[in-house]
Design a protein around this nucleic acid. Structure first.
Lengths: 128, 128
DNA sequence: CAGGACAGGGAAAAATTTATCCCTGTCCTG
DNA sequence: CAGGACAGGGATAAATTTTTCCCTGTCCTG
């Protein structure tokens, strides 16, 4: 993995949470595993749009920090399944809260962002 | 601002939440404003380690999506204060949840991350 | 054997975010 | 006037993340 040149803020809870969940596709991957889509190839199929390589990288990072772990079955051919660790499970409510907030306000956010250039201020308009 | 070449996922609540709060210093900036540190120069002082230019960029992005808004006092010299919009206020509990989760698990996360190279698996060790 | 599913990763490019440097103004105080 | 606080941003570089391309294996089925 890329060796960071600028140290991270590892003592701030918020920074840690964002580090864990902030990757572009991490939350989706966690959601897959939560729903039982646990094999690498299955996750790849579930997320057609995302390059398998990327998913593997994110899986590895999630594994590194102990959010998921890998179970390797000594079958032939070898089967791999990812599962949430207890700490990974504890993250689910956090994801839910974020998801709910985002769903509740995404229209507002997107509208503002889109209208910003045109000089509108949705916030003020909503205040009426 | 940089013009994105790859479209974002604006219909997913999680993506929206991460977009809003995922910036490297956005959460700290929101925290400043929440605590009443609302003037640009005051925020700069509060976050010595971060380049003022960056803070300005993040402020602008937070303003663009309607999380904060700018109040410009017609004084001389002009005074500027940032405040949270209602939607910005609604984000605070989400930040708190993330912060709490991070604080509760940052040791576990950091330990795992640090030990990963050495082959230890903190998750399994904790399971004992 | 040919082809495909499966797990995994190196190398390098592209995209994006973050950082640095330095500039433009106004105003106030000594 | 000199200097500093204040608000703001252009140009550019550096750091980081994401993407693409392509390769290594094993095994199973037709």
């Amino acid at each position: 993995m890329y060796q960071k040149k600028i140290p991270e803020l590892l003592d701030c809870g918020l920074a840690v949470a964002i580090k864990v969940i902030g990757g572009k596709w991490k939350a989706w991957i966690i959601d897959c595993i939560r729903r039982g889509v646990s094999r690498p190839s299955a996750i790849h199929r579930e997320m057609q749009a995302v390059n398998p390589r990327i998913i593997n990288l994110h899986l590895k990072e999630l594994e590194e920090v102990g959010i998921i772990y890998k179970e390797i079955f000594a079958e032939v051919p070898a089967r791999v399944e990812y599962r949430l660790t207890p700490v990974g499970e504890s993250l689910l409510p956090v994801i839910d809260v974020m998801e709910q907030w985002g769903n509740a306000h995404k229209d507002y956010i997107n509208r503002n962002h889109a209208d910003y250039a045109s000089g509108n201020c949705q916030f003020l308009q909503e205040a009426n």
